[in-house]
Structure formats: C-alpha cells, structure tokens
C-alpha cells in the first residue's frame, strides 16, 4: 500500500465511509495512520464526525482548526494537514470532498504530496444516478483530475444502497468498474463491501475486499 491514499469520488459514493474503514484497517500496520478530512463542501456526514472512534483506534484525525467537528461551515483546514503528508513514516488517508468541486482543495496540497508513493482513488457507486454509465464516470474523473491537478490511479467499487445493498448492486458496480478500467486503463484496487456480504462475493475479482462497517449513519437512520 502506498503511503498516501487520496479518496475522491462523487458526492454520495461512500468516500468518507470507505476512507474511515480503510484507515481502521491500516492501523494494524507498523506505521502510524492519519486521516485527513479535507471535505469543505459538505457540512454533514464528514469523516471527522467519527474522530472519537478513530482516535480510540489510534487513527489521528485532522479536520479543521476549531477542535469541534460538527456544524462549522467555515473551510478552516488546519495547517496540521501538512504534517502527515510530509512525514515519510506516516500513512495518510485523505478524504476529499465530493465531486470535482470537493477535489479542488487538493490543489492547495499538491506541492507536498509524495509523487511516487501516492494513490489517488476514485470511488464508484453505480447506484447513484450521476455515476451509472461509463460516460458519466469519464466526465467525473476528468473533472476531478482537472480541479485537483492530480491523476486518478485506481478505482474502488463501492456500489451500495446503504444497508439495503445486495450482491446484485456489487456485481453491477463491478461491471461498470471493469468498463472504466478497460477504457481508461485504471486498475480496480478495492471493493468496499458490507461486512455481511463479504462471504457471498466471487473470489475471482481483481482488487482487495475492504469490509465496510457503516460508522457515519446513526442507528436511527437505518431501516425504513
């Protein structure tokens, strides 16, 4: 795994949930792990809301400078964010804001990213209306690349319907990712899969499975 992993994607693709799970999964590794929440676009469902959980699990969280993680609609990205990016001994996961718009903030950190040791992921949720076709995904990826000044280096099939997700959605997501992968010559690096579905997936898909626990949705949001 590269030292810096940047998680981008469409708003609602599940970037933040994926970033949190990826960070928690990395903790067992030798090096310290930091999660940089650079989402300045969306004031709700940000990964820094889970600061307590993450820090309990030894993930350092860098959000804004207020020390309060909810309800602040000022971008206020902490200069502390430079630390993990420039420290060769730390794993850093960046949760960027959704869409090309959210990715723009990456531009202000581009100059300190370790070029050779940096993965830029695009999270794909084929259940979202704006990211169901190869055309839509091409537009999204080129938008993110244009705004951030970074090239996407890999795909994450994170296709889901929240807790209603079945293997059907995951298969559709996989098909879409394979199309994108062929068209843009990008590897499929991860599958974000609800823990309950991990056993049901075929074993021959390229990429790693990242079991997803849903941390950002409160208990009362589940079920309908």
């Amino acid at each position: 795994m590269k030292r810096v992993t940047i998680v981008t994607g469409h708003f609602g693709s599940g970037k933040s949930e994926f970033a949190i799970n990826l960070a928690l999964r990395l903790v067992s590794a030798e090096a310290p792990v930091a999660l940089l929440d650079l989402d300045v676009v969306n004031p709700y469902f940000r990964s820094r809301e889970q600061r307590e959980l993450l820090e309990r699990n030894a993930v350092r969280v860098i959000g804004n400078t207020f020390g309060k993680d909810v309800g602040v609609d000022v971008p206020a990205i902490s200069a502390e964010a430079y630390g993990p990016l420039q420290d060769p001994s730390t794993y850093a996961i960046i949760d960027a804001g959704g869409d090309p718009v959210g990715a723009r903030v990456l531009g202000s950190f581009r100059h300190v990213l370790p070029r050779e040791n940096c993965e830029v992921l695009c999270v794909v949720n084929a259940s979202r209306p704006e990211t169901q076709s190869i055309q839509q995904m091409r537009r999204l990826i080129s938008g993110i690349e244009g705004e951030s000044g970074l090239r996407i280096t890999g795909l994450v099939n994170n296709t889901h319907m929240l807790e209603h997700t079945t293997t059907r959605e995951l298969r559709r997501g996989f098909e879409l990712c394979r199309e994108i992968s062929e068209a843009l010559e990008l590897p499929i690096l991860y599958h974000g899969v609800l823990q309950s579905l991990v056993e049901e997936l075929p074993g021959d898909w390229p990429g790693e499975l990242v079991p997803i626990a849903m941390y950002l949705r409160e208990a009362w949001m589940h079920g309908s």
């Binding site: 300045v40 971008p75 990205i77 723009r104 903030v105 531009g107 202000s108 581009r110 100059h111």
Partner: peptide, 12 residues
Amino acid sequence: CPTNWGMSPLAS
C-alpha cells in the same frame, strides 16, 4: 483563498 482556489499558498 488557497483552499477554494485549489492552489498552494505560494501559487495563490
């Protein structure tokens, strides 16, 4: 506004 301009402080 480096953050929203998407630029490094110096470039801004």
